[in-house]
Design a protein around this nucleic acid. Structure first.
Length: 929
RNA sequence: GCCCGAGUGGCGGAAUGGCAGACGCGACGGACUCAAAAUCCGUUGUCCGCAAGGGCGUGUGGGUUCGACUCCCACCUCGGGCACCA
């Protein structure tokens, strides 16, 4: 019956707009419906519409938010729950390259498949509010927001983004110094170049994975372990390109501090804090033949121990510092480092490698000439891309010094315990220590004429002394740095948002006026990039949009007459749309603004004065802990600073659902292959006849191990499937997929049905007679427990409680032939968030003409939660030896005397005397011997 | 490697300092049936024991506590992320 009932109620909900949430203003306004209800904005991390459609991992979070939304509607909230598609992205473009079918066609097909699969689940979304990031009416506003960012700068004093025009005005009026040259004497190109050093969106040279054999740049995921392309197995080269970058680092401190205001899982906050990676220390300048080399160090107090310097292979000074003798070796080393993945370069267990540049720098505190080395364990993306190496105080520097026989000078005397742990005597020369010493210790070898650290002092004091010395002698100053890097925002692809940017004849980027939006993607006949010689690492990469010549060359009047311009040919990354999509759900059809301010304030604004606003519940996978969740916070803050939104944070409460896990398989190159096509051969697994290795991980497109939900609908129906997904564990835990277990939830629903409806006659057997006291108490205990579980998203235990109630009801029905109506009504109401179709059907059969959706959740009669007698375990030395059945209002004294009189307790005590009797009132007795 | 999690019966899990194994799956036994399916009733951590009863038991090793799945330390294994999958 499930399929018939479910499609009937889905049709009813569609026809009646059951889940449409009223707005306060604009086309979706229904003020009468808004009045007197608190708002609740519930959000799912929207999916990428993959060609494989939905897999059974997707609905875990979607069902959970739907259950929660339905529960909250029953407790009086105006619930906004909408759903959209993050539909730009790599797979659609790859599909287009392979088949020649336009990504838009493919994307629409995939969206429709997913929409159908989700509709079949009975999710209560407001369908009017669905958006796709690829809709022109959507990405028009993604481009508009980019322009807001481009046309802004970060005012360090006010600690907020401000329009770039206000900076220009300050330069013009002279209230702000433009730098070495006065603003008035700069030409227009120089002015633009100066402004670009302030803009929150700017161009920089950044590395890409360039694959000439495919004629395209590749995502990290598309590069194999051996540094070749997944498709075609061609060589991949790391090289730099001029790309858009967003100045997220300006927000590092606010992104860090505002985490404290959020109701997010603590581990996610920790991950974001670590990702932002704030470090205090000093910038120090070392003189060299090629000018000063600046390093960042968290330990300026160890500067006397800096016996060499190390530059990242990508450092701009490497060329000029390399002498002719070392030239060839350095070039070879840089080439090999270029082909390493960053993730491997950060592997501390890897043997250190490096090469001497041939040049020296001067340690500012000792005046000593120290060699400058180049090594890949120093990364260009952190600090200044160069370090001072203190081998006695840093393990990586220590290993490097030992390998290349570089000098080691101790600046702190380790503790005796440390020497004991290392198994060496305190007189051991630091050159032969087994490892570096990191920690507090008496300073030694750390003094020059004007800076003396030697002796006993705290690290903080030594750092402060060094920092002020550096500043006084113009060698550096205290500084804060972050691991967080500015956000590389260009992709050399087709299927993304075009930038609303054109270049003038001076090659200066110009933001288009809003009237030019949206900048739509040009049509292309062929999505295949122009392949080159696989080893041609010289020719420039040509992004797909660059081949649309008529689109690229454009004539515009931007206020100074018609001129020729050239469009930006990169596109935005997929993150762009997901940075603000939740705002568009609020006002999806607005053509004047990205969202009506009044509507935005209602759904996103702070609910209490001084409170934090944002989405009330955001549910999604923990894999988004740092990137998506940091990028969208950044965009929200820019929009907030510019006065476009009323909440400084986008997502007030975050909940991470676990993953549905499944086996996945990888080929010899480390690339995943589709799990459905893998065959087991004895103990081993093969794909297309080649051996593959098995692993276990999150179901999804990356691991190619999805299982479609459609067969669940066919075999069991949506209600059973929903219940199964919610019952298999706590929402935040991952769980393996196991079709075999689904039947249990179907049996449960069938038992509920049979308790209310006679199978033979199809008539209700619900009676008006009162439920006996014990059954009524069971009902109210269940209402109490299920309500609390629903509030805390503990749907698995809510379901267990409902099963227990129904099992008790079955015993009653078997004895009495009918279900008391109070139990029938309560059970159906409690079930309705979880299995809404069956609940609607039973509700209707129980004589109600309106949907159960807005019926109040049953209320608890507190007097029904009492029990007459309780069972108290009695422990002897922590082991349960007996149980007491006592009155529910038993006193501690009664428990004590009953416990020690119990024969099994006396036996377990074996004649010994109790030294203590611990009594937990009305719960437990522990006799301690 | 670094950052963040998780390890409990044959399986998914419950219990957040107080009775380990709720609830479900599976398995086993019984009822119904010509039979099977479905349904209903019962048993089911493990070891010793005919039983009564007892020993052991929440990844491993230590610690705190009257009492630890729960808190602390170390380790092992598995999962998520590591900036161009999203």
């Amino acid at each position: 019956m499930a399929n018939a009932i479910e499609s009937q109620w889905q049709e009813y909900w569609d026809d009646n707009g059951t889940f449409e949430a009223p707005n306060t203003a604009g086309p979706l306004a229904e003020p009468a419906k808004v009045a007197g209800r608190k708002k609740l904005f519930i959000l799912d991390m929207f999916p990428y519409p993959s060609g494989a459609g939905l897999h059974v991992g997707h609905p875990l979070g979607y069902i959970a938010t739907d259950v929660f939304a339905r529960y909250k509607r029953m407790t009086g909230f105006n619930v906004l729950h909408a759903f959209g598609y993050d539909s730009f992205g790599l797979p659609a473009e790859q599909h287009a390259i392979a088949t020649g079918v336009h990504p838009r066609v493919n994307t629409e097909t995939n969206c429709n498949i997913m929409r159908r699969q989700l509709h079949r689940l009975g999710l209560g979304h407001d369908a009017r509010r669905s958006v796709s990031t690829t809709d022109e009416s959507f990405y028009k506003w993604t481009q508009w927001i980019f322009l807001q960012i481009f046309n802004s700068w970060y005012d360090e004093i006010q600690q907020r983004a401000r329009p770039i025009n206000e900076l220009v005005a300050e330069f013009e009026s002279g209230t702000r110094n433009a730098g070495d040259t006065a603003w008035s004497s700069l030409n227009s190109v120089e002015r633009q170049e100066l402004l670009s050093t302030y803009r929150l969106a700017y161009l920089s040279e950044s590395p890409v994975n360039w694959c000439p054999g495919l004629g395209t740049t590749l995502a990290n995921e598309e590069v194999t372990n051996e540094g070749r392309s997944d498709i075609g197995n061609y060589p991949v080269f790391k090289r730099t390109m001029r790309q858009w970058t967003l100045r997220i680092t300006k927000y590092a401190d606010r992104l860090l501090h505002d985490l404290d205001t959020l109701d997010w899982p603590e581990p996610i906050k920790t991950m974001q804090r670590n990702w932002i990676g704030r470090s205090e220390g000093a910038l120090v300048r070392f003189a060299s033949e090629s000018g000063p080399i600046e390093v960042f160090t968290t330990r300026p107090d160890t500067l006397f121990g800096a016996t060499f310097m190390v530059l990242s292979p990508e450092h701009t000074l490497v060329d000029s510092l390399t002498n002719s003798e070392q030239r060839q070796a350095v070039d070879e080393y840089r080439a090999s480092a270029a082909n390493l993945k960053d993730i491997d370069r950060q592997d501390d267990s890897r043997a250190k490698t490096g090469i001497f540049s041939g040049s020296f720098a001067v340690n500012p505190v000792t005046g000593t000439k120290i060699p400058i080395w180049i090594a890949d364990y120093v990364l260009m993306g952190y600090g200044t891309g160069a370090i001072m190496a203190v081998p006695s105080g840093d393990q990586r520097d220590f290993e490097f010094a030992r390998k290349y026989d570089l000098p080691i000078v101790a600046t702190q005397m380790p503790s005796d315990e440390w020497f004991a742990e290392q198994g060496i005597s305190p007189s051991t020369n630091c050159v032969t220590w087994p490892s570096a010493y990191v920690g507090e210790g008496i300073y030694i070898n750390s003094a020059n004429e004007s800076l003396v650290l030697n002796g006993e002092r705290s690290m903080a004091q030594a750092i402060a002394l060094t920092n002020s010395w550096l500043e006084a002698h113009d060698f550096g100053q205290a500084a804060v740095t972050y691991k967080l890097r500015d956000w590389l925002f260009s992709r050399q692809r087709y299927w993304g948002e075009p930038f609303p940017i054109v270049y003038d004849e001076n090659n200066q980027p110009i933001g288009l006026p809003s009237s030019e939006l949206p900048v739509t993607l040009p049509e292309l006949d062929d999505f295949k990039p122009q392949a080159l010689d696989p080893n041609d690492n010289v020719s420039a990469p040509i992004p797909p949009l660059a081949r649309a010549k008529e689109w690229v060359e454009i004539e515009l009047d931007l206020g100074d007459g018609k001129r020729k311009y050239r469009r930006e040919v990169n596109v935005m990354p997929q993150w762009a749309g997901s940075c603000w999509y939740e705002l568009r759900y609020l006002d999806p059809t607005n053509s004047e603004r990205f969202v009506d301010p009044e509507v935005e304030k209602y759904w996103m604004g702070p609910q209490t004065p001084g409170g934090t606003g944002g989405v009330d519940l955001y549910v999604g996978g923990v894999e988004h802990a740092v990137l998506h969740l940091l990028y969208s916070r950044f965009w929200q803050k820019v929009l907030f600073d510019l006065g476009h939104v009323s909440s400084e944070e986008p997502f007030h409460r975050l909940f991470n659902q676990g993953y549905v896990m499944a086996y996945a398989f990888r080929d010899s190159r480390g690339q995943t292959v589709p799990a459905v096509d893998v065959v087991q051969v004895g103990e081993n697994f093969e794909y297309n006849g080649a051996p593959v290795t098995r692993e276990y991980g999150r179901m999804g497109k990356s691991l190619k191990n999805g299982v479609a939900p459609d067969e669940m609908y066919d075999e069991f129906g949506a209600d059973t499937f929903r219940l199964y997904e919610m019952s298999t564990g706590p929402l935040d835990a991952s769980r393996p997929w196991n079709t075999r277990d689904v039947i249990g939830m179907q049996r449960f629903l069938q038992r509920v049905w049979r308790n209310l409806v006679d199978e033979d006659s199809n008539e209700l057997h619900v009676s008006d007679s009162e439920a006996p006291l014990e059954l009524r108490r069971e009902l109210h205990r269940t209402i109490n427990g299920v309500g609390a579980d629903m509030d805390h998203l503990r749907f698995n235990t809510a379901i267990a409680k409902l099963i227990e109630l129904n099992n008790a009801l079955t015993i009653h029905v078997n004895a009495n032939g009918s279900t008391p109506s109070e139990v029938a009504l309560g059970l159906v109401q409690m079930l309705s968030p979880l299995c809404p179709h069956m609940a609607e059907e039973l509700w209707s059969r129980l004589g109600h003409s309106k949907s159960i959706t807005y019926q109040p959740f049953p209320s608890v009669d507190k007097s029904m939660l009492l029990r007459d007698t309780i069972e108290i375990p009695v422990q002897v030395n922590g082991k349960v030896r007996a149980r007491l059945n006592v009155s529910a209002d038993v006193t501690d004294d009664e428990l004590r005397s009953l416990a020690i009189a119990e024969p099994k307790v006396i036996q377990a005590m074996a004649g010994a005397v109790a030294t203590n009797i611990v009594i937990v009132p009305k719960r437990l007795v522990n006799v301690v011997l």
